[in-house]
Design a protein around this nucleic acid. Sequence first.
DNA 1: GTCTAGCACTCTGTGTTCCCGAGTGCCAAG
DNA 2: CTTGGCACTCGGGAACACAGAGTGCTAGAC
Lengths: 337, 337
Amino acid sequence: MLDDRKLAVLRAIVEDYVSTNEPVGSKALAERHNLKVSPATVRNDMAALEEEGYITQPHTSAGRVPTDKGYRLFVDRLSQVKPLSAAERRAIETFLAGAVDLDDVVTRTVRLLAQLTRQVAVVQYPTLTRSTVRHVELVPLTDRRVMLVLITNTGRVEQRVVELPEVVEDTRIAHLRAVLNACLDGCGLSAVPELVADLPERLPAEDRPAVATILSVLLETLVERHDEKIVFAGAANLAGADFTTGLRAVLEALEEQVVLMRLLGETSGDTPSALTVRIGSENPYLHGTSIVATGYGSGDNQLARLGVLGPTRMDYPVTMGAVRAVARYVSQILAAS
Amino acid sequence: MLDDRKLAVLRAIVEDYVSTNEPVGSKALAERHNLKVSPATVRNDMAALEEEGYITQPHTSAGRVPTDKGYRLFVDRLSQVKPLSAAERRAIETFLAGAVDLDDVVTRTVRLLAQLTRQVAVVQYPTLTRSTVRHVELVPLTDRRVMLVLITNTGRVEQRVVELPEVVEDTRIAHLRAVLNACLDGCGLSAVPELVADLPERLPAEDRPAVATILSVLLETLVERHDEKIVFAGAANLAGADFTTGLRAVLEALEEQVVLMRLLGETSGDTPSALTVRIGSENPYLHGTSIVATGYGSGDNQLARLGVLGPTRMDYPVTMGAVRAVARYVSQILAAS
DNA sequence: GTCTAGCACTCTGTGTTCCCGAGTGCCAAG
DNA sequence: CTTGGCACTCGGGAACACAGAGTGCTAGAC
């Protein structure tokens, strides 16, 4: 059905269209890529490709434009991820190395990715549920208030002010802190609920109301921030591009955590560390856009996802290269800290 | 020079232009606002207003459009801040009351303001330098590493991992924590540097290298996060508007903390709690945009600034009302926590 | 003096027409 | 199977006319 030359034609169409943003015609195509055949032959191939749904023409007597299906074939079989230049890799490394804490790592990553790809970059905060407890701290503020601070191995810090049901002395708070740490240090966050389940019973009855309150806030913290937080950068890169769905819709989606979460999250398949590409109508919302995403985190411990969002007409090989590289570097950084 | 009727004409021009986005002519104006004079008279007044530079016409034989100077006069003398409806006030209150921590307060505030004004909202994080130390925590991670956590009275938490120059026992860490807290609890952050200046000398010589390291990280934390952090929301509201300076430039400015900082910061005058309005070319960058901003924080203790950014052609009375109201509510929330 | 009515003038935006050129599909010959 | 030739289609730009909204000006009315 599709011989090698037809595939070469499709590849050429995608490449030309991506770089010029204009429907590409048979003549220009036969000239610029040395296909060694005449425009007429190319036209025949194009007709076949259109028949199969890989390309389409905006109107009669215009050049051809790839369809979503065409991009899909291109990404799957006709292109290979383009590695970054040595200079770019060095730049990434030094830029990320300067981060002081988790917030900073995420902020730098998202900016870096946006700049590198000239698209909108999206980074999900490392998931709490997969990380482990490094330390739990209870800080007495007044005699009825303590601050609960949860520090994870990814450098994330969650804090909440807890209003106690009764006055509790500092020494008992200190004891409670010791018990909590003994119980939770190094445990996975997802294991926390069952680990603390019988904690009230193992303590003196007088402490139970306070403990119950503190634990409920702790558990609330775990579920609330689950993996909700996503940041983006590079919105300015949208200014030029034209989206079928409208610029406004894209910007709205970016500011809506839930939508963004689904766009990013649903790309996650069996192997989260693999590069995933969703093209145009393959996306749940935002049909006019494509998303290139991948998981990051050390080795088998995939923490979260990052990627970029852009118009369907994007340079997939380059974008995929950048996303993959940034994910690797940020994984390294997180593993080291 | 400008009698009452001319001012009324200017006001009417601004109001009509803001709501229709089309140059307003003498006839329509005389009809819609009951000025009790004929279009011809209005034309004479318009000629005078144009002479003085308050309005201009895009081209001969088009209606008039306010200039920056015209908006300025409108804001200063011809309009009054429009208070929110009771329903809106209630909505603000309940929405902000649900915030769990400082991050949440800021996030909710910026979204609320964006939604309320249908513009881009900008909120600066409460300044560290004006807040006070609530607690300093030192958490031993390994024998050469501690985590330094600084909690302020505004609910802000800063944390840093400190690499110690030598092994330090936990008991000495605990002692150091006690000393630090005794020294700093309740003090203004700006006072911290001098308060800790002589701390190493008051401790045993053996502790000094570790203390010096910890203190340097602490001081670094204070200056680094000074008042840098600014968040925005509502970029989608830019989609419709047209900026003389270009949408791209606006989006870039929004993502550039430094620029945003200057836009927001330089509106701060002698009385930070007052509403400030910068119109069009009055802005340092982004000449096509206007900014309505104000300080927030409890009473005389102004913590930071918030505001909105939009096209010069915006509904100033409504926007100013929303900004003022949100600033008040968020100040309340912060004072209460 | 100030306001009003009338009038001639000047634009922009829109709709129409026309034409060029790029690109196609098809066919017959190599 | 490939190629050259040819007639056909259609979008986009240029040229043009025209209606409508708005203005400035001047002469008259209160």
